[in-house]
Amino acid sequence: MSARLRAALAVVGLGLASMAMAQGSTMDEIARYREMLADGNPAELLELKGESLWKTPRGPKNASLEQCDMGLGPGKLDGAYAQLPRYFADTRKVMDVESRLVHCMVSLQGFKYEDVTRQWFSRPGQESEIEALVTYIGGKSNGMKIDVPARHPEEARMAKMGEYIFYRRSGPQDFSCAICHGQDDKRIRLQELGNLTTRAGAGVAMSTWPSYRVSQGAVWTMQRRLIDCMRQARWPEPKYLSDSVIALQVYLQKTASGTVMQTPGIKR
């Protein structure tokens, strides 16, 4: 090996080492930033708003949501989020927190479906009532373990559908969820990409939603997160509350089962 080639390789090695150190340092700083924000998570304000929306009589029927059954009985929220999605006999559907919430707002409060879902995510200067309610409901599972065994036949079917969607390559870029989230130690730019096929990886991802996203200045729900992922993968964007999004949640929550909820979380 010539001296010139050895020198060139040494320079490349130093460059790679410097990049790795810089990347590690940046990730450490991001972790410290999240830790500082956790003491005053802006999502806590939205959580309080969600509590008010849950308890206040509203809509054409002038009713509160306190009789809404999120799977544990009317009005029982402690641990409910951690056990969703699940099958509901009254609708004969597997529902996640958002689809069940919309169902209650329509059936108990008399709102029209179109009106309830028109603003399902926040925009600058326009908060979403659904995001506030989901943040409140999610907070009631904080510290509890995710428990979505998908034992009911319909839940098992949705879990299989979600797994199929996770691995299916689609869109003009021939992309799948698994390309980014099917292996350990992958990242895009400075963002770590969790391996969602393992309990540890899926647990980190699922246990902290809904989350306050610093880059967006808003709380995002799991529906919004998954729909945005599909958009970025250049897939045909699914409709809000579609079976495909709920099926993905069943698959991911089943994989994450046993992980302790830490919500609302903080993301970049």
Rank of each mutant, 00 (worst) to 15 (best):
A200V: 11
E29I: 12
M19N: 11
G171I: 12
I130F: 04
L252T: 05
G138H: 02
Y164S: 14
F88W: 08
W209D: 00
S2V: 03
W235A: 12
S141W: 07
L72Y: 11
Q183G: 05
M70W: 01
G13M: 10
P210Q: 06
D115W: 07
I130Q: 02
V214Q: 12
A150V: 08
E237K: 15
Q183C: 09
S64A: 15
V116G: 06
S207Y: 01
S215D: 14
Y212H: 05
P153Y: 05
G203Y: 01
P264N: 05
I227F: 03
M144Q: 15
V245P: 00
M230A: 15
R234V: 08
P60E: 09
G50N: 00
T221K: 03
P42H: 08
Q262N: 14
I30D: 08
K140D: 04
S99Q: 12
L53E: 10
G201L: 07
G265F: 04
Q262S: 12
V214W: 03
L16V: 13
M36D: 12
H103M: 04
S176E: 11
D28V: 09
T255L: 12
G13R: 08
D174V: 09
H181T: 09
P85D: 03
G139H: 09
A218F: 04
T91D: 06
L5C: 04
N41K: 06
V219Y: 02
W235Q: 09
E127H: 11
L72V: 10
G73N: 09
T135C: 06
R151S: 09
Y113E: 14
R32H: 14
K49G: 01
Q253P: 04
Q191F: 12
A38D: 15
L45H: 00
S176H: 10
W235H: 14
D69F: 10
W235M: 13
D90N: 12
A132P: 00
W235D: 04
Y251W: 14
V214N: 08
K140E: 10
Y136E: 03
A247D: 07
L46Q: 13
Q253N: 15
T91H: 07
S211L: 07
G143L: 08
R225M: 12
P57Q: 09
P60H: 11
G75I: 05
G217A: 06
P149G: 08
L248W: 02
D174Y: 05
Q262M: 10
Y240H: 15
D243N: 15
R58Q: 14
M1V: 08
E35D: 15
R34D: 01
R6G: 02
R187Q: 15
I246Y: 04
C177S: 06
Y136K: 07
G15R: 02
R199C: 02
E129F: 07
T56R: 14
R225S: 07
D174C: 03
A63L: 03
I30K: 10
P57R: 04
T91A: 12
H181A: 04
A63V: 03
K267R: 14
P124C: 05
P172H: 05
L65Q: 01
M27P: 00
W235F: 15
R118Y: 10
D90R: 09
D185R: 15
E35A: 15
M161S: 11
A38H: 11
E163G: 03
T259I: 08
A89Q: 12
M95F: 02
G75K: 04
